[in-house]
Nucleic acid binder design. Structure first.
Lengths: 219, 219
DNA sequence: AAAAATATTTAGGTTTGTCTAAATATTTTT
DNA sequence: AAAAATATTTAGACAAACCTAAATATTTTT
């Protein structure tokens, strides 16, 4: 199926909002992300509904159909592959590529995307660390970063502990860190490479390099 | 200046028609190449005129202004660079890339084009042999092909005669071939590698391989 | 549970780029 | 040079995607 640029932008943004807000997407949220007045959003929601891309009833929350979801993922796939291309092949900086990829993602050829992906070596993550779905729409497993590698202030979810011996578990219990905890690195101290972190709603705490190196998380 | 996709397509097509028909471009010709009814073409001509991209007066022939010309060349430049990319990097066949390049040429970032060109090694000709203008809009010298290499039915202009001895000149005079003649190869005979050509408005004629090899032309 | 605030939709417009049909110019033929 | 043919423009519509203002639903507050 082929879509207009506008339809594609709506699909993509609905998808992102769904992921971020647990399927509960409202017209006003969408209105903000697509930078368009609510009344216009309503028009488009009806259009997407008529095309069976969206489950939608007036005044209710809405969400993508299976077809809509698949279409959104294809657009996101293109966006991220182009970002990868722009940064890794054309040597743009990672913060310069978003706008350009916003245009490139609407180029329609499927064959182009397949060949581009192949040329790039089937990358799994784009330069911002976002996963690149494969041609079947499957997202790769989230990349895991140790706390040593996690960028400052980047919120993350603890997903894996490498050294699982009791001594390590004691420390984790002490700081109340567990799989699923949300945390961010606030500061790194050069002297001993210790790092200050904030876990969930607790006050900030400082952990050693050895501990940090064993905690992995996903962004 | 930024243009809509539609404006860009008109600019590009006017440019091509101008080159092919010596500045004498008519609305009906354009109507054919942009695949749009004449009435719609008129609308766009007025719009381009108002934007000072086109010299235009009702019922008269029209031609691009300097600004319009420059814009058209920039679009053509993008088209040809992308074609080069598609064929030489993504390994498409040369006859598969036109449509895709028609979309890519409208991606607006100037920086993208510059980096793409650099990545590709500043190519001078696209996979179809068409010249790629540089970032200042200058076309490289046309690639010259001998009649032996000229694709069947490809219209070309005679630009150079390698062997300029009298015997050769006699032959050329006989066939009324001179620098600037328009010709195309109609047929190649396997037996003696002679080729049938059509020069200007004359009836078809057949020339030997030796003669063909000495006539160079540009597409 | 009523009032107030907020969210969403409807109604009626606008712009861009297209269309058809009719009017008008220009060019070609006789 | 008049008639016929062809090319171009004008007039009036339409779809897509947006807008504002007003009407209507829903949610939150009191």
């Amino acid at each position: 199926m082929k879509f207009t640029t506008s339809e594609e932008n709506y699909l993509k943004n609905i998808y992102h909002l769904q992921v971020m807000h647990d399927k509960k997407v409202s017209a006003s949220m969408l209105s903000e992300t697509v930078n368009t007045r609510a009344a216009s959003v309503t028009d488009m929601l009806k259009k997407l509904h008529k095309k069976k891309l969206l489950h939608y009833e007036p005044y209710k929350h809405f969400h993508l159909t299976e077809t809509g979801n698949r279409a959104a993922i294809e657009i996101i796939r293109k966006h991220r592959l182009w970002e990868f291309f722009l940064v890794n092949i054309l040597k743009f900086k990672w913060d310069e590529v978003h706008e350009i990829a916003e245009e490139l993602e609407h180029v329609s050829s499927t064959e182009l995307v397949i060949r581009l992906e192949q040329f790039l070596g089937f990358p799994s993550f784009d330069p911002h660390g976002d996963p690149i779905p494969n041609s079947k729409g499957k997202m790769p497993e989230q990349e895991q970063l140790s706390l040593e590698a996690l960028p400052l202030k980047q919120a993350a979810t603890v997903s894996y502990i490498r050294d699982q011996r009791i001594a390590m578990m004691d420390i984790l219990a002490h700081y109340q860190i567990k799989i699923g905890s949300r945390l961010k690195v606030i500061r790194r101290f050069d002297f001993d490479e210790s790092i200050e972190i904030k876990v969930d709603k607790q006050p900030a705490a400082t952990i050693s390099k050895q501990v940090a190196a064993n905690i992995y998380c996903t962004i």
